[in-house]
Structure formats: C-alpha cells, structure tokens
C-alpha cells in the first residue's frame, strides 16, 4: 500500500458524515444551549482523530499480514532449498570432501536464514501491542470528546464514531510500564496461596 492509498483510507474515515451532526439538526429540542462554533469544531476533530486512529490500526494489521505472507514464502523457499541440498549431498558424484563441505555450509546458512525469518515473524507482535496502545488512546480521546459534547449541552454522543476497541480496555488494555509486573512470580504466588487455602 502506498502513501496515497493510506491517505485515501484515512480521509474516508475522517470525512465520513457523522451521525451526531445529523442528529443535531433533526432534534433541535435536544440542544438547549447552542455550542460555540469553535468548540463544536474541536469536538468534531476529536471524532476525526478517533476514526483516523481506527483506520491506521486496520491498515497496519493488513500490512503486517502482508509482511508475514512474504516471510512465510521465504521460509517455504528455504525449506525447499534445504531439501534439494540434502538430496544433492546423497548423490554419488557429490561425495568429494570439498563438495560435501560446501553443501554442509549451504545447509548451515539456510538454517541461519530460517531462524532469522522466525525471529522476524515473532517481532511482528509489535503490531498487536501498538494497536492496543492506540486503542487505549482512542478510549481516552472518546471520553474527552463525550465530555466536551456533554459540557456544551448539545446532547451529541460519539456513538456513530465508535472505533472497534475492546470492551475492557478502560480497566485493562496495554498496561502502563510503571504497573507492569513479572507474570511468573504472580502466578507462583497465586498457586502457593491456593495450596495453602
């Protein structure tokens, strides 16, 4: 995906007409106090940011899967190469010491490449972790957005702008660094307390 596609996707999300603006026009009785124009624009921008972040997480997940596809392909090609080299090593014509040594080195380097491909796949976990951090930001932005709207008495909510976040993100989500703990020690402590109980 190139930059223009990303921009187009983001603009689609950001420029999408929001249900809240429509609702405000249809139900004027729900807006006893007219929101100052500048403040309403700020609230709308919050909604846009939520949509944009949601779109970014969707794009990065899709693009990460494309990287995973390529890594899978490399992995399969290496496996095929290893298989071919193994067969060549068994050929009567390939029994000279120098040839065997060279083939052995090819096998070793192939294994190293395979390990590096696996490491790269494992590193793709960053996408899910970043996504959850962004969801947490979206959650807080939405709270601010709803607070501003409520404060202005417009009766507008961000329902139409709900990004696809986890239900429990408010209580949990990606844990801030200062609250992170070592899971194994907590598990052990819990199991010991269960045994005592």
């Amino acid at each position: 995906m190139d930059q223009s596609e990303i921009d187009a996707l983001l603009n689609t999300g950001a420029n999408k007409p929001t249900g809240k603006s429509k609702k405000a026009k249809e139900t004027p009785s729900e807006t006893p106090i007219a929101a100052p124009k500048g403040a309403e624009t700020a609230a709308d921008k919050d909604g846009q940011v939520i949509s944009e972040i949601d779109a970014v997480t969707a794009v990065t997940e899709r693009e990460t899967n494309k990287v995973m596809d390529q890594l899978d392909l490399i992995s399969q090609l290496i496996a095929k190469q290893q298989d071919l080299v193994t067969r060549v090593m068994q050929q009567p014509d390939a029994q000279a010491e120098g040839v065997q040594q060279a083939l052995h080195e090819i096998m070793t380097s192939g294994k190293t490449i395979q390990d590096k491909v696996y490491e790269a796949m494992d590193l793709m976990q960053f996408q899910d972790i970043t996504r959850q951090k962004l969801e947490r930001i979206v959650f807080h932005l939405r709270q601010i957005h709803d607070y501003i709207i409520e404060l202005l008495g417009t009766g507008l909510k961000s329902e139409g702008e709900r990004a696809n976040i986890s239900r429990t993100i408010a209580q949990t989500g990606t844990t801030p660094d200062e609250k992170r703990t070592h899971a194994d020690s907590v598990v052990e402590e819990f199991k010991r307390s269960q045994q005592k109980g």
């Binding site: 972790i129 949990t172 989500g173 990606t174 992170r180 899971a183 907590v186 598990v187």
Partner: peptide, 26 residues
C-alpha cells in the same frame, strides 16, 4: 498485553492455568 498484578490475579481467579505477557518468545 495486560501485565499488572491485579490483572494476572483476576485471570487466575477466573480459571486460567498460566499467563504469558506479550511480547513473548517461542
């Protein structure tokens, strides 16, 4: 990704047998 002590304990109380925090190694 939840790595706070209270989260881990809540999961264990719910019935989880063990707990791994992302990112994990193979």
């Amino acid at each position: 990704t939840n790595a706070a002590k209270e989260d881990i304990v809540a999961a264990l109380q719910a019935g989880v047998n063990n707990y791994v925090v992302k990112p994990f190694t193979p």
